[in-house]
Amino acid sequence: MLIDLPRFVNAERPHWQALEDLLKRFENDPDLRLPVDEAQRFHYLYQRTGAALSRISTFASEPELKRYLEWLVSRAYSVIHGKADRRRFHPWRWFTVTLPTTFRRRFHAFQMSVALTLLGCLFGVIALAIDPEAKSALMPFAHLAGRPSERVAQENANKGKNLDGHKTSFSAHLMTHNTQVAILTMGLGISYGIGTIIMLFYNGVILGAVAFDYVMDGQTVFLLGWLLPHGVIEIPAILLGGQAGFLIAHALIGWGDRRISRAQRLRAAAPDIVTIIGGAAVFLVWAGIIEAFFSQYHEPVLPYGVKIAFGCAELAGLIFFLWKGGTAPEPRG
């Protein structure tokens, strides 16, 4: 196709500039809604620029111009063919409706997280039962190294004062560290889920080994009083991280969903992944506060019964929230 290129560029440039200006408006305001006449003009400019790209594509001399037009057309294409129902983010609605409904919709992935953690727990229990010497390998943490009864005596003697002056920073440390663990558990889903499986299993091993160690040493009540208040939120939050990780893995593998491409599957899964990991982060903020300001107090400062009851109430609230949250109440009569 023969065209007088300089004249063509000069004639078309104002249209390209107009399209670019409109695209900038969309970029500055993702919720922009154009009036009908402007929308028609936008579509016209898109088509005109697309036509210019087709004409220039057979022309050898202007690779930069071709790239520029491709860039314009691709941006306009993404605006025209993008989601039309982009809504403003409402945090309360997201937390009370989107999170629990997404959780339920993707429940299979959560079940897998729970199953792997329980499997890890079982392994931790059996491993410690068979070989008590393996304790340092199974629980490589200094505060868990000694006998549980010694720790309980020490904690009771401290009366929760060992964290005086550090509770807030300890809480912040817990929040950030646990959130990183949840993100890591999610992110490892990119290894087709293998990394997520290992993370969940390993967490389960530690949990099972610690529980077995305390139970065998006769410290079951202390264990429940210590772990339940924050653990009933913290552990499900890590499981949510695993759930999000399995969503990535599922989108990569495409089991039962191979009619659409991997790219489409990943794009479709992204909102659910973000919702679930966001929910995990919120739960971990709560767990961090509870662990620093509540869990560290033991008898005689706080009776174990109160701590256990508090933990049970939290668990019941969490289950109710995830099971019933976001569902409209039944109409009366």
């Binding site: 063919h81 993008g82 489409q264 992944i273 973000v274």
Partner: peptide
């Protein structure tokens, strides 16, 4: 977006 669609926040 790798498929040319609009980049979503998620």
């Amino acid at each position: 977006d790798a498929t040319g669609l609009r980049l979503e926040p998620s």
